[in-house]
């Protein structure tokens, strides 16, 4: 048994330490807001916060994250009203929506450290997150809206 701290709760997991965190969160703990897109830390769909840093959960192993604070999209805000989430809705960002939880987690981590990012800082921070539908213009706008107040 490995004990994880996910969204402020202790969760016990009976799985091999070599299992990527993504699959622990999704298939063992039911946190299906975390998405599988590439399995190689190339697309950002599985982004979660690990001690406040945005990380790709497909690239983290279960054995590496015990004792660290993990936050998923489900735990970003109890009511789904984190400023980034509100901005995403105000700007009507999503098309298919599949990548958006990862995008939102990435943006929230950026703004936690850099509350008023430049355009270039937004693009640099968000460049690890692919959106195949091509919502980038609105993603950029929504990060700006979240930074300046929704």
């Amino acid at each position: 048994m490995i004990t994880l701290n996910v969204n402020g709760q202790e969760r016990k997991v009976d799985a091999d330490p070599s299992l990527p965190l993504l699959w622990v969160l999704r298939d063992e703990l039911g946190m299906t807001g975390v998405k599988f897109g590439c399995g190689a830390a190339l697309c950002g769909a599985c982004t979660v916060h690990l001690d406040g840093e945005a990380v790709r959960s497909c690239g983290m192993l279960l054995g590496e994250v015990a004792g660290k604070k993990i936050v998923t999209i489900e735990g970003l805000d109890a009511h789904g009203n984190h400023p980034v989430q509100k901005a995403w809705r105000q700007v009507n960002v999503p098309q298919c929506g599949f990548c958006q939880a990862g995008q939102i987690m990435q943006a929230a981590a950026l703004l936690a450290k850099t509350p008023n990012p430049s355009d270039e800082e937004i693009d640099t921070a968000m460049a690890g997150n692919i959106c195949r539908c091509g919502c980038y213009q609105r993603i950029h706008t929504a990060v700006r809206v979240a930074a300046t107040g929704v």
Binding site: M31, T32, T72, E74, L76, G80, N92, P94, G97, A101
Partner: peptide
Amino acid sequence: VQIVDLFNITTGRATYGAD
């Protein structure tokens, strides 16, 4: 009119194929 799944998409509650 906003898309009906907007809130669920932004909160990770929307149901896709593997969910």
